[in-house]
């Protein structure tokens, strides 16, 4: 049974995402798996993390006992100060996002559709939702990478033909990296590029709610 096979863990997803970040690029990380990405930046590569809390060029998370109360990321975690940081206010922070100055954002998702629509701010019957800055990032970042588990807690596909949860942005997702696969969103639909070790293309398709085209170069998950 496909359901019982081992899947990649959250750190491995984050590691795979980190390989997508351009050297010298400005990158915004969402909450959850995306937060882990900053720990896996390719050696020799320099990525400038943007946090809508108001800091550019965020350092890694602060060590216990060395927290600076005035230096946090968007998830409220303490950061280490690093040379070359810049602080800014919230309107400027979102001008950077909306104005197309951020190269990549990495976000979690409840659903991604065949057309690259993103739903990640509200689950029906769960309060008022958590829009935060997700809608601004979906609308403004040059590339939107979704980092998530391939299926939900009931093992239902999170990659679907049409999103049934409230939409964050239409056609904004460029790449989906899950615990089973790497899938590119193209004008022609979803293209399966990489599959987790031990998994077959057919098994990934069976847990995906939209038709996947299989890349001619499909390969094992690249770390």
């Amino acid at each position: 049974m496909a359901e019982q096979k081992a899947r990649l863990d959250r750190d491995v997803i984050a590691m795979r995402v980190a390989k997508e970040l351009p050297d010298g690029g400005y990158v915004n990380l969402g909450i959850g798996i995306p937060t882990l990405v900053s720990g896996f930046v390719t050696e020799g590569s320099m990525v400038f993390f943007h946090s809508e809390s108001g800091v550019l060029n965020c350092g890694p998370l602060a060590e216990e006992g060395h927290e600076d109360i005035d230096l946090i990321n968007a998830g409220g975690q303490f950061l280490q100060p690093v040379p070359g940081m810049a602080f800014f206010n919230s309107a400027e922070g979102f001008a950077m996002i909306r104005g197309g100055h951020v190269d990549v954002t990495v976000l979690g998702a409840h659903q991604v559709s065949a057309k690259g629509d993103l739903a990640n701010w509200m689950l029906p019957d769960r309060g008022v939702g958590n829009i935060g800055g997700a809608m601004d990032l979906a609308a403004g970042a040059k590339a939107v990478i979704v980092a998530m588990e391939h299926t939900d807690r009931e093992n239902q596909p999170k990659i679907v033909q049409e999103c049934t949860y409230p939409i964050t942005g239409h056609g904004c997702v460029t790449l989906v990296i899950t615990d089973l696969a790497v899938i590119r969103c193209t004008a022609q639909g979803l293209v399966l590029e990489e599959v987790a070790p031990g998994w077959t293309v057919a098994e990934v398709q069976a847990l995906t709610g939209a038709k996947l085209a299989v890349s001619a170069q499909v390969k094992e998950y690249q770390l």
Binding site: A91, G93, F94, V128, I131, M135
Partner: peptide, 9 residues
């Protein structure tokens, strides 16, 4: 609920 960047603008 209002998107954060919308609130800012």
């Amino acid at each position: 609920v209002v998107p954060q960047g919308v609130l800012a603008e």
